[in-house]
Each structure stands twice: as structure tokens, then as C-alpha cells.
């Protein structure tokens, strides 16, 4: 029964990891930018949410309504300024600049907010409570909600990109920037919108993780960025459904690892990641990589 429990918990945390991975995947898919500051920005979103909640005393869940748009705006601005000008130079420059941002944000958080860990909404019934299935399996409401949110976000993005007019524009720009520009699309603006979407999901991921666990300045890299990346690679680059599958596989691997030895949770996830990298570099969903 413990194993069944581990698998159920793993699948549900997989939703959280897919939420981590969503923005990373989207920015790579559209701009070919690997944002190394991805996780740190999620932590920033979490800290902003904590700040907003403490100052304005609004209900915890309302903070999403403020922080997600703010982060989306930040995404647009960052994309139109430094990420775009790095992109105009070379892929190498985007890596250096986003890595620089990552280090600056992480150490900035450390400097201003100390290394203490912070949680969001610990007194919320949603965060605290769980329900029982049978006698041994206990499932937190929060994880179920996060999983549902991840599925809705991925479905929404998939629908937006494939069916809506603006989504088609984004795909056109991602496929062939020059041709789209000749047809009248302002690719910089389109990139900005894609970054705004990505940063919106980053904010969701950061606040959700703050509710599920705790945020520290280093959480951004050692948890969010690396897990997001592992989920993307396991699932297969460039596929949103693959990302969900990758998140679930990573989550299950970690929970099974924790079941064997509590300190091996993270290691088990990485070992599955490396195994996929060796045996199936294109990811579990079978499309070949485009990069």
C-alpha cells in the first residue's frame, strides 16, 4: 500500500513539476531562449506574493490575481529589453545574461531576505487538510488542486497556441521569424507576449511551490530550475503534453526513491533523468527534437 501511495503522491507532485517546466518549455519553443533565471524568477514571484499578502492582508489566493499579471508584465519588459538584446547578439549571450540574472537574483534575495525559508498560506484549510482513500493513503487537497491547475494551464496553452489567432502568430514567428516579419508580424512584440505567458506560469509555479513546501533563495535553482529541466527532457523537448508526462515520471521516480531511502528522493529523480538522456535522448514522447 505504501507503494501505491508513493505512486499517487508522485503523479500529483508531477503536476507541480509540469507547472515548473511550462514556462521554460514555452520560452525555448518560441524564442529558443533557455532561461537559466527561470527558477529564481519563480522564487521572486513567491516572495512578492508573501510581501503582498503581509502588506495588504488580502486572502492568500487573491495574491495570484496580483502577482501573476505583475510577473507577466515583468516578463514582457525583460524580454523586450535585455533578453531581446542578448538574443540579437548570440545564443551564448542569452545564456550568460540569464545565468547572470540567476546569480544576481539568488544572492540579492539572500542579502535582503536572509536564507530563512518562507511558506505561503500555511493556515489555509486548502494547504493543511487532506482526505483519506482507504486506510493508508492520504492525499492533500492542495496537491490535487495544483495538479488540476497544471492540467488546465497546459490544456489552455495548447489550445491557445494551436487554435487561437494569436497562438498561430506565435507559432509562425517561432517557425520562421523573417517570414513572419515579412507578413507583417512584429516578432519582438510576439516574443514579448510569449515571455509574458511564460512568466505568468512561472508566477503560478513559484506561489504554488511556496504553498506546497517552502521557499528559500536557493530553491529557484536547486529545485525549480533543475526539476523543470528534468521534466522537460524526460517528456521530450517542445511538447507540452510531454512536459506533463515528464513531470509525472519525475515525481513518481522521486517518491519511489523516497520510499526506498528517504534521503534518495532527489537523486532517484535525477537518475531517471539520466537514464532517459542515455536511452531516449528525444524524450518519452516520440517526436524527434528540433534543436
Amino acid at each position: 500500500m505504501a507503494w501505491v501511495n508513493a505512486i499517487i503522491q508522485g503523479v500529483l507532485t508531477g503536476g507541480l513539476y509540469a507547472l515548473f517546466a511550462c514556462g521554460l518549455s514555452l520560452m525555448f519553443g518560441v524564442m529558443k531562449v533557455v532561461n537559466l533565471a527561470h527558477g529564481d524568477l519563480a522564487v521572486v514571484a513567491g516572495y512578492v506574493a508573501i510581501g503582498v499578502i503581509t502588506v495588504t492582508r488580502i486572502p492568500v489566493l487573491w495574491s495570484f490575481l496580483i502577482v501573476v499579471p505583475v510577473m507577466a508584465l515583468l516578463g514582457y519588459v525583460l524580454q523586450r529589453t535585455i533578453i531581446q538584446s542578448a538574443l540579437d547578439r548570440s545564443v551564448l549571450t542569452t545564456l550568460i545574461v540569464t545565468f547572470g540574472l540567476s546569480v544576481v537574483i539568488e544572492n540579492g534575495l539572500l542579502q535582503f531576505f536572509t536564507a530563512n525559508s518562507r511558506a505561503i498560506g500555511t493556515d489555509l484549510a486548502l494547504v493543511r487538510d487532506s482526505f483519506k482513500v482507504g486506510s493508508q493513503i492520504q492525499i492533500g487537497y492542495l496537491l490535487v488542486v495544483i495538479f488540476a491547475v497544471a492540467v488546465v494551464v497546459l490544456l489552455g496553452l495548447q489550445y491557445f497556441l494551436s487554435a487561437s489567432k494569436y497562438g498561430r502568430l506565435i507559432r509562425a514567428v517561432a517557425d520562421d521569424r523573417e517570414a513572419a516579419q515579412l507578413a507583417g508580424a512584429d516578432y519582438r512584440h510576439v516574443f514579448g507576449i510569449a515571455a509574458a505567458l511564460a512568466f505568468g506560469t512561472v508566477a503560478l509555479a513559484g506561489i504554488s511551490y511556496g504553498m506546497y513546501s517552502q521557499l528559500q533563495p536557493t530553491t529557484g535553482t536547486d529545485t525549480i530550475l533543475l526539476f523543470a529541466f528534468a521534466a522537460v527532457v524526460i517528456g521530450g523537448l517542445g511538447s507540452l503534453w510531454g512536459t506533463l508526462l515528464g513531470g509525472v515520471v519525475l515525481g513518481v521516480a522521486q517518491q519511489i526513491g523516497a520510499q526506498i531511502n528517504i534521503s534518495d528522493e532527489v537523486l532517484a529523480g535525477y537518475i531517471v533523468f539520466l537514464a532517459v538522456l542515455v536511452l531516449r535522448p528525444q524524450g518519452l514522447t516520440s517526436r524527434r527534437t528540433q534543436s
Binding site: 542569452t94 533543475l226 539520466l274 538522456l277 535522448p281
Partner: peptide, 16 residues
Amino acid sequence: LRSGYFAIATWVLAAT
């Protein structure tokens, strides 16, 4: 893996 994904892969490897 290439470029950006190579970068994070090395990072994961170091953590592993």
C-alpha cells in the same frame, strides 16, 4: 544536448 539544454544538463549532473 545542445547549447542551453547542455548548460542545465551539466548543472543537473553536478547536483547528481
